[in-house]
């Protein structure tokens, strides 16, 4: 089968076009079926070695990647900053050069510095998947969000999606915005102005100050985690005041259509950006996002290794 996908790396959704994104989503749909079977393993990546290099800590993303790799029959190893020789002062590039020298096929990298995955991809031949680089990008999270929206709503084109919370420091927000715009959605971002860069207006994103305006008419609302350290950084006075004006709760949900989806990339601060009852309520698709994340990562791994196989022929 001839694939549209012709890249050794997945770095950000900014780099992809609509056809490439759609191919990932279509491929993920097939793998979702695999995950629903009694036997959840296929031999697609047998004989491939993948290193999950998580310089910045993560729970669900590394679990999801590792499960995806194992269900595709790849051999996987996880290393973290504390178990790598970064601790001994080795540079990131040298560490990954050593991994590459052991004929590893793919490196999945999580790092706190924006552009870390791009930097490795440019300087190495091994395939690189970005599992989150600072505030820059988290492409598989963006893809799983879009996958969930497409599955529930049929199409992304014309969909009204509101992203609410800390956009400034958010890689999830950036990944969603680029992916959604490329597939023709209308994107709104909302939160206190200290956390919502107006520069996004230049690429056609609607920016609003009031959560009511972001909720009314939305088909999907993606609530982002608000981090305690942003309060300490002086971006807003307290989580209590943040909740008062920007949370999705019993008071504000009345502005949202009953058909709208409620999403959250996790981990949730229950009672801060999202009320517990709503997180667990009928409109919430938060756990389905997690289920879909596995399928999306299998799709990405499958397409990239497929391309690498063709390159070697």
């Amino acid at each position: 089968m001839d694939h549209i996908w012709k890249k050794k790396d997945l770095l950000s959704l900014y780099d992809l076009n609509a056809d490439e994104i759609t191919e990932i989503l279509d491929t993920a749909e097939e793998f979702k079926k695999v995950n629903q079977r009694n036997v959840k393993k296929v031999p697609a990546l047998r004989g491939k070695t993948i290193v999950n290099f998580f310089v910045e800590p993560s729970t669900r993303t590394i679990l999801s990647f590792e499960l995806a790799e194992k269900r595709l029959s790849a051999d996987t190893i996880n290393i973290s900053a504390s178990t790598s020789s970064l601790k001994k002062g080795e540079t990131l590039l040298d560490t990954v050069r050593n991994i590459e020298a052991m004929q590893v096929d793919l490196v999945v990298i999580r790092h706190s510095a924006p552009g870390a995955a791009d930097f490795l991809a440019k300087n190495l031949n091994v395939g690189v998947i970005n599992a989150g680089d600072g505030a820059h990008s988290h492409p598989t999270q963006g893809l799983l969000d879009i996958f969930t929206m497409r599955e529930k709503k049929g199409s992304i084109k014309g969909l009204n999606v509101s992203i609410i919370g800390d956009i400034l420091h958010g890689r999830v927000a950036r990944s969603n915005i680029w992916g959604l715009l490329k597939l023709g959605a209308n994107v709104t971002i909302c939160g206190p102005r200290t956390l919502v860069p107006r520069e996004f207006e230049q690429i056609g994103v609607r920016v609003c100050d009031k959560i009511q305006d972001a909720l009314e008419g939305a088909d999907v609302v993606n609530m982002l985690r608000i981090q305690q350290e942003r309060q300490e950084g002086g971006f807003f006075p307290s989580t209590a005041e943040y909740s008062k004006y920007f949370a999705l709760n019993k008071r504000t949900i009345k502005y949202l259509s009953p058909d709208a989806l409620i999403m959250h990339p996790g981990p949730i601060n229950r009672g801060v950006e999202l009320d517990s009852e709503i997180a667990d309520g009928p409109q919430s698709v938060i756990l389905e996002q997690v289920t879909n994340g596995l399928a999306v990562r299998m799709g990405v791994l499958y397409l990239i290794t497929g391309f690498l196989n063709n390159e070697k022929k």
């Binding site: 600072g134 505030a135 820059h136 400034l168 950036r174 520069e199 230049q202």
Partner: peptide
């Protein structure tokens, strides 16, 4: 600080 720092997350 501007459009590109916003896009690049830096």
């Amino acid at each position: 600080k501007g459009y590109w720092s916003t896009v690049l997350g830096m």
